[in-house]
């Protein structure tokens, strides 16, 4: 079933940070959401998750900062149980051992509170919670920003395997064009609270039409360019 939302918008301090936006996401879609810092990517992610949950769709959300997903006063075991309950799973039904092993966090002590885990481990724990069920959509906001390249590659590999052949759609919010180039088939480019271009990843990276897309595509490997 296609996930459809229309008229999503958001304001902050009297300013519009997300202009009215409509989206349709088909099962199995792999969509990347890119744009400049402050363009409204994370805001769209949050608003989209809320709107779809209000329509009774199941949505897993990995926010940009693990702090947004984890209560500092609750143990990691509490968060895991809470996620199982939210998905209607029996306690212990999710294959925690396999997920933790794939994400290389099997050494984490679930009795501890979030701050006793490193930031990278917290981020992977939140990803593990997102992968315990079969939601309609997974929204991943900068899922590898706190991970070293080896762990990041393993994490994205796990995501690829988990979603292969699945009807679960994925939205990957990131500023890392190298990451989306290999993992999503469609790209949406945001600029000042609006989606200014939505096309195949290949088209946007090779033949961007809008000015923000051209700027982003031109800076894909900025570190190789003279400052």
């Amino acid at each position: 079933m296609t996930l459809s939302v229309s008229g999503l918008s958001a304001m902050r301090s009297g300013q519009t940070i997300l202009c009215p936006t409509s989206l349709a996401i088909s099962p199995g879609d792999r969509i990347g959401l890119v744009g400049a810092s402050g363009s409204g990517k994370s805001t769209l992610g949050h608003v989209l998750v809320d709107a779809l949950r209000a329509q009774s769709h199941t949505v897993a959300h990995v926010p940009q900062s693990p702090d947004e997903a984890l209560d500092p006063l609750r143990s990691m075991a509490f968060h895991w149980r809470e996620a199982e309950q939210a998905l209607g799973l029996q306690p212990g039904a999710a294959d925690q051992k396999a997920l933790f092993s794939s994400l290389k966090i099997e050494g984490g002590d679930l009795r501890k509170r979030p701050w006793a885990w490193s930031r990278g481990m917290q981020q992977r724990f939140v990803i593990a919670m997102a992968l315990m069920g079969v939601p309609d959509l997974i929204v991943l906001d900068e899922p590898t920003s706190a991970l070293d390249p080896v762990i990041a590659a393993a994490t994205m590999g796990l995501l690829d395997r988990h979603l292969r052949g699945s009807k679960t759609a994925m939205m990957l919010i990131t500023h890392d064009l190298g990451l989306v180039a290999r993992r999503v088939s469609q790209l949406m480019v945001m600029h000042e609270g609006q989606i200014v271009e939505h096309a195949s990843t290949k088209d946007i990276l090779e033949r961007p039409q809008s000015e923000p897309s051209k700027v982003l595509a031109a800076h894909r490997n900025w570190f190789a360019l003279p400052c």
């Binding site: 810092s37 070293d148 500023h175 064009l177 700027v215 800076h219 894909r220 400052c227």
Partner: peptide
């Protein structure tokens, strides 16, 4: 947490200031 364009401009500012002022920079990064 920065996009590619802002990364480039921020890195340039840091590099320019370092050239002018000579501060030592230790950067932890992935």
């Amino acid at each position: 947490a920065l996009d590619a364009v802002t990364q480039k401009h921020t890195a340039k500012l840091i590099a320019d200031l370092q050239d002018e002022e000579g501060f030592a920079a230790l950067i932890v990064t992935h």
